[in-house]
Amino acid sequence: MDWDKLRIFHAVASAGSFTHAGQMLTLSQSAVSRQISALEEEINTPLFQRHARGLTLTDEGEMLYAAVSDVLARLAQAEEALKNVHDAPRGSLKVTSTHGIGSYWLVPRLANLMKECPELELHLVLEDRELDLSQREADVAIRMRAPVQADLIQRKLFTVHYHVYATQAYLDAAGTPQRCEDLIDHTVISYGETAPSEVRDINWLADQCKRAGRSGGKGRIIRVNNVTGVLNAALADIGVVSIPDYVAAQYSQLIRILPEIPGPSFDVHLVYADSLRQSKRVAAFRDFLVREAKDWHY
C-alpha cells in the first residue's frame, strides 16, 4: 500500500471528514477524496461508510486505522531517538498556544530560552483553537484547560486571573463605576463569538451587564474577537474591559476597578504527547516553562 495514501487515510479517519483532513494536510477536499477512493480500490475494500453527517470507519477501516496509528507512533519515537543522539537539544519544536498566553506571557520570555538552547528552532502557532497533538499539528501546547486524552502528558504551570480595568482618561470622562449595576451606563468591551471555547465565562463582564439590566442604561457592549483587540480598545479610552492580570500588569495606564467583583480564573497547562516523553527538545522547553512559571506570580 502507498504510504502517502495511508497517511491521508489516517488524517481522514481522525478528522471524520474529507474537508477537515484536507485543512490539516493543506490539500483540497477533492484531492483527499480521490486518494481515499484510490486506496479503497487498491485493496478492494471499503474503508468508510459515507453519510450526511460525515464519515465512519468500517470494520476493515478500524483495523487499518489501528495499524497505521501504530506505525506513526513508532516513526515518531524513532524520529525523537535520532534527534536525541546529540547532547544539547536541537532541531525544530512547534509550540501552540492561545493568542493571549503566547503573545503576552510566552514571547517576552523567549530570549532566556534562546540563550539556553541556541540550536533549538522554535515555531510558534498562536491560535485560539486547539491543534491536534496526536496528529502532530504541534509538538507541545500551552492550554487554558487540562486535556482529557489519555495519551497526553500535562503539567500545570500557573493560574490566570481576570479582573476589570479601564484607563484614567476613560474614567475621567465616563465616571468610575462603584458597583456592578453601574456598568449599564458604561461601554463594556467584550470578547467576540470566536473567543477560546475552553475558557469558560470569558465574557463574564458582559453577562454581568445583561443580568443588571443593560436595556435601562445608556451604555453599550463592543465585541472584539481576541485579547489584543480588547486591550487596544481599552488603551484607546473606549471603555471597561475584563482582561488577565498578567496582561494588565504590562500597561501602567490601566487601572483596576470594581475589585470586589470576582472574575474567572483558569489553570494553564503544558501539554504534549506521551510519545515525546524522552524528547530533549520537549524536556528543555518544559523545564524552561516550569522555571519561568515558578518565578512569576499574578
Rank of each mutant, 00 (worst) to 15 (best):
L205M: 13
E198H: 15
F18T: 04
L157T: 03
D172I: 02
L120F: 07
R291Y: 01
G219C: 02
A273I: 01
R211C: 02
V85A: 09
F48S: 03
Q178H: 08
A212H: 03
Y298I: 10
L254A: 07
L47R: 01
S92M: 14
N232V: 03
L64F: 01
Q135W: 02
D287I: 11
L124C: 08
W105A: 06
R136L: 02
S97T: 02
H161I: 09
Q208V: 14
V241H: 13
D132W: 11
F48L: 01
C209M: 02
W105L: 01
E130M: 15
P177Q: 02
G219Q: 07
Y104T: 02
I101V: 15
E292Y: 07
A81Y: 04
I153G: 00
D185S: 13
L82R: 13
P118W: 12
L131Q: 06
T159C: 14
L152M: 10
C209T: 02
Q168C: 07
L126T: 09
A293C: 08
K218C: 13
S92W: 09
L82H: 09
H297D: 11
S69I: 09
A283G: 01
L39V: 05
L93D: 04
A73L: 13
I243D: 00
S17L: 12
H186P: 07
L39K: 05
Y162I: 00
M24F: 04
T159W: 12
S265F: 04
K5L: 12
F48D: 05
V230G: 03
L110N: 07
D59L: 07
Y170W: 05
S103I: 12
Y246Q: 12
G54S: 09
L276K: 08
R179K: 13
V247Y: 04
R220S: 11
E198Y: 14
T159P: 00
S33P: 08
G54T: 08
A273N: 10
M24V: 14
G219K: 05
P196M: 04
T176H: 05
T19I: 15
Y170M: 05
N225W: 10
R90V: 01
D267L: 15
A293G: 07
A146Q: 13
R129T: 15
L205I: 11
V107A: 14
Q135E: 13
A21D: 11
Q49G: 06
A66T: 06
T19A: 13
P244C: 11
A73W: 06
V164W: 07
R223D: 15
C117G: 00
Q253Y: 05
L231W: 04
Q208A: 15
A15D: 03
G219M: 03
H51E: 09
S103C: 02
D151T: 12
A31K: 15
S134I: 06
Q149I: 00
R291C: 08
R136M: 06
E137P: 05
A293V: 06
L75R: 14
V240T: 12
E127C: 03
L93V: 03
H297E: 11
L110C: 06
S69Y: 07
L124Y: 04
R143T: 13
R136N: 05
E79G: 11
C209D: 00
F266E: 09
S28A: 10
V282W: 02
L120I: 07
V247N: 06
K5W: 09
A233R: 14
I222G: 03
R179F: 00
G192W: 08
P196V: 04
L152R: 10
I43P: 06
